[in-house]
Design a protein around this nucleic acid. Structure first.
Lengths: 329, 329
DNA sequence: GTGAAAGCGCTAACAT
DNA sequence: ATGTTAGCGCTTTCAC
């Protein structure tokens, strides 16, 4: 691999001149520049990114950290983060936190391989976040409200969403409502569940233990939990899935069991993923403002990168989206 | 930010000793090691990743290059690449080729910020691929059959897929078949179209110009193309969407226009994305072996990274998936 | 077992 | 306008 040294030698100029020419500095004469560029071309010279980053001690890159690169993607969120990065002239890479402490994500965070990060990965501990973030290395976390030096949070009001979803069912006459839960260590799930409980309590309703089942936030989990619920004999009149992925799995289980939605049972989800609109029946759910939150997170990160002062926590509102999976009783 | 120098000083040892201790080299005495580790802890020392990469001149990271980080995701493919990377002890990052020559993807490729890459992005030119790849920097390209030094391809047999899809329609009695096309510069689209034409020709059928519309491989494009097709008055009995995303858009347009699928019109897609199973009616389509191709691409990349000899081009078979959007005429 | 020193490829301050 | 040079933070050879 040819280095800038080789280019300089071939062009017959000093190392620094070659560097200036290559980066388009105006103080180098156009004749010299041409010579250097030509030499670079001949040698198929490619600058070494690390050497530059090391010297500059910044990368011009931010990272988006996700639990799993293979989705389910909050594609709207990713898109808005991408747009913000692009418009700030920064590069964006995505990396996964699979593997926890040994994951790519943690490596990039700890070894400062980027200038800052947006984190949407519950398996990155607060500990790592707190010890990695600093004024010089800002982090925006989107799935919890942890804050600290260089660490701020942008979250969506999950408690209110859980409340709204449940309230919607109750207003339509439902009294027997199941809650299919996400992982017990999930902050998001906890909030949604709290909202669910608040609405239930307020309506003088009681949660039934047999109707609270775990689905781990994945489609297969929703499917299995629903199957299990159906095996128990008595069915609730409505079920609140703590996210849409599980609701999609649940719909499939219900369909297989010959339980018609929404005639025999109402189903509500949470997230408003793309698929929600396409399943049958179209899923009533709580919309998370993905675009807004991604965009906000991105902007905040750049403000921090620019040394501007920002608040330490932001909370965005959710919205009930009525489709066809919920019916008046 | 504390450097290894600071750690060494605080621990009262030489730079090199600190380095050895930190990387767990066995030749350093456990007493010294403890001293160094303790100093590192006190200073909240984090190694600088670039300095290490620069010195080592390898990153232990591979990149997956996608057109758009925000999907539509070939999530199965990503997952299998991720698995292979993980099992080889490598890190994986994803980056987007949006922005073409100025994209993050090109920067990572040219500046060798990773050890190798898997590319699934038609807007990365052959030129860039060829000039970036080398024995020391292997690339596997998955959306065309370009090959060269350090550059091999893993593709799916799109021509055969186009043929199979069309043949399926013809066998069920269809004679009037529309083709909703992807971007004209897409290699994938070209292959599928060739397969379509081969089946048509073989059956003595003629393609009608008015029934070949562009949809750019996106949902919205499929929707618009279908609307346009419907405005033309006469409808074909079947339509072949060059990918599932467009088919999903098309189904929506058809539904809105009150055209029933598959009774009045049959619809077939290509890709077998996750959504295909969930739209209504469930989409008959051509399955791409995402898992296999991702896994193969990953394994090949690591073989190249290990200096092993590999073939330069691999072609995988597709499979027709019959669901409910196609009907005998 | 530990330390001194070279150097990875680059940028930028400084000198000419 | 061009050249000289000092590092960026790390790994690793070589001497002790």
């Amino acid at each position: 691999m040819a280095t800038i040294k080789d280019v300089a030698k071939l062009a017959g100029v000093a190392l620094s001149t070659a560097s200036y020419a290559l980066s388009g500095d105006s103080k180098v004469s156009s004749k010299t520049r041409e010579k250097v560029l030509e030499a670079a071309r001949q040698l198929n010279y490619r600058k070494n990114g690390f050497a530059m980053d090391l010297k500059r001690s910044r990368t011009n890159t931010i990272a988006l950290i996700l639990t799993d690169l293979s989705g389910p993607y909050y594609s709207e969120l990713i898109r808005s983060v991408q747009d913000v990065a692009l418009s700030n002239g920064y590069d964006l890479i995505a990396c996964s936190s699979m593997g926890g402490k040994d994951s790519t994500a943690v490596k990039f965070l700890r070894e400062k391989r980027v200038d800052g990060a947006i984190v949407l990965a519950h398996n990155i501990t607060d500990d790592i976040l707190l010890s990695s973030a600093s004024a010089a290395f800002p982090i925006v976390v989107m799935d919890r409200k942890t804050t600290g030096e260089g660490l701020i949070s942008v979250v969506v009001d999950g408690e209110q969403g859980g409340y709204d979803a449940t309230r919607h069912l109750i207003e339509l006459g439902h009294r027997q409502i199941a809650y299919i839960s996400g992982p017990s260590n999930s902050f998001d799930n906890a909030l949604r569940y709290q909202g669910f409980l608040r609405a239930m309590r307020e309506a003088g309703l009681e949660e039934k233990a047999k109707w609270r089942l775990g689905g781990s936030f994945i489609r297969e989990g929703g499917y299995k939990a629903t199957k299990m619920m159906m095996m128990q004999g008595e069915l609730p009149t409505a079920v609140f899935y703590a996210n849409d992925e599980m609701a999609v799995g649940g719909i499939k289980a219900l369909e297989e069991g010959g339980v018609s939605i929404p005639d025999e049972i109402s189903v509500i989800g949470f997230d408003d993923i793309q698929l929600a609109e396409y399943v049958h029946p179209a899923l009533t759910t709580i919309h998370q403002p993905m675009h807004e939150s991604g965009s906000l997170a991105g902007h905040l990160l750049f403000q921090m990168l620019n040394g501007e002062e920002v608040n330490e926590a932001y909370k965005l509102k959710v919205e009930l989206i009525r489709r066809n999976s919920v019916k008046q009783i």
